[in-house]
Nucleic acid binder design. Structure first.
Lengths: 218, 218
DNA sequence: CCTCGGAAGTTAGAATCTCTAACTCCAATT
DNA sequence: AATTGGAGTTAGAGATTCTAACTTCCGAGG
């Protein structure tokens, strides 16, 4: 890489780092090109050399976020173990990741950015995160189902590159994901704040319920 | 009510109506005081006679939203029936409500508005919605549990005015709520859009799983 | 019926934002 | 050494929310 390009990349990273700080402190609306420039000791318009506009910056933050989450989940499920243990590891890692930067979690999975349309590249990152979760789900000895739903899920899995799993496993993975996300998004949005209920206990109870899936059928 | 106050109230309602239109069309960022004024044939600053600031307007939309949702859920669970049927009714009503105005759903349960702090009045409305859902949950013949979690839930239920239900029922209600919200928030945020999976089937499958709770224990 | 107080609306403007255009300047490459 | 192009600057357009000062006008009370 060219020396110019190195500096350029360095600056881009610094912009994103500061943007994440502002995101953490003041939410997505706090990500201001002018403010970031000021923090870098530079005027606002200078940054338009590095990002075509504010949305492009946000898009890149989202994309990076998906990749970071995928790495985290992948690391969490890498040590092999019983499915229930892997699920617990993945769920715990997911929650830790979400709570470490709530605004970033919401940036990925909350209210979508108005004009934003996920580019190919981002979808791939999102898929990596999903695949990591499906890895945690793993085995399944149940007979395959053949609803219309399972057909759609199977087709989706083929396109996403985890067609080797049964559609039941993939559906189960989606269910795991949506249930964990349900609790996490409520927690991160502060809905439990005044309730006196510890969201962690709620979360762990849900994980336990999910883990029961692998116990012998009744 | 004074005639002046009548006009005033009428204007306030019109502002909120237009705000909801803009919300539906362009998201929360599209709610602009100036734009609403223009649509009403009035300059922007005129509206500050009716709402102290933009946040106050948003807050009122949120509050109204909770009340509307509570009414909807209450109506859905009013015809008595088997628990599973009531749950299906409530879940279907909730989904219909969310899909009828996705941006409004996100306004209530998505990324929180930056400076926003729910006023007492809003919490009461939110509680009404929760109570309607708990009504759908209804009976339970399981023995009570005594985790720390169930203690917190029971305490919360007492404060919220549904202390007559067992903590298990209340916990179950929270679970129902978070699972439905998990799927709905993903659907409303457009996460299933390119997957080829029909979110309704996913939703109904989850409702079915929830309904199985009332079947005799294994 | 008539006055008058206060509500409602206007314009002007401050402070913020994103983003464009034109310009300067410096450094690396040729 | 000359040139080219990237990086930064200032100026400014067009938004935004919101305040302040001013005008107009209507409903309520005498």
């Amino acid at each position: 890489m060219d020396r110019r390009q190195q500096y350029r990349e360095q600056t881009r990273q610094e912009v994103k780092r500061l943007a994440l700080e502002q995101l953490a402190e003041h939410g997505v609306a706090g990500i201001s090109v002018n403010a970031i420039g000021k923090r870098m000791g530079v005027t606002g318009p200078a940054l338009y050399r590095y990002f075509v506009n504010r949305d492009a910056l946000l898009t890149e933050l989202i994309s990076d976020g998906y990749h970071d989450l995928a790495d985290t989940l992948q690391a969490a499920v890498t040590p092999p173990g019983a499915p229930a243990a892997r699920l617990l590891a993945a769920a715990t890692a997911l929650r830790a990741w979400a709570l470490a930067a709530p605004h970033r979690y919401l940036l990925l999975f909350g209210t979508p950015v108005p004009g934003y349309q996920a580019p190919e590249h981002t979808l791939a990152a999102a898929n990596r995160a999903m695949t990591a979760l499906l890895t945690a789900v793993g085995e399944d000895s149940r007979p395959p189902a053949s609803d219309p739903l399972h057909g759609q899920v199977a087709e989706w899995g083929r396109r996403m590159g985890h067609g080797h799993l049964t559609s039941r496993q993939q559906h189960w993975g989606l269910t795991v994901w949506s249930r964990l996300h349900g609790l996490l998004s409520l927690e991160v949005a502060g809905q439990f704040e005044l309730s006196g209920i510890d969201p962690e206990l709620l979360f762990l109870a849900e994980v336990e319920t999910l883990a029961a899936w692998w116990e012998p059928e009744s």
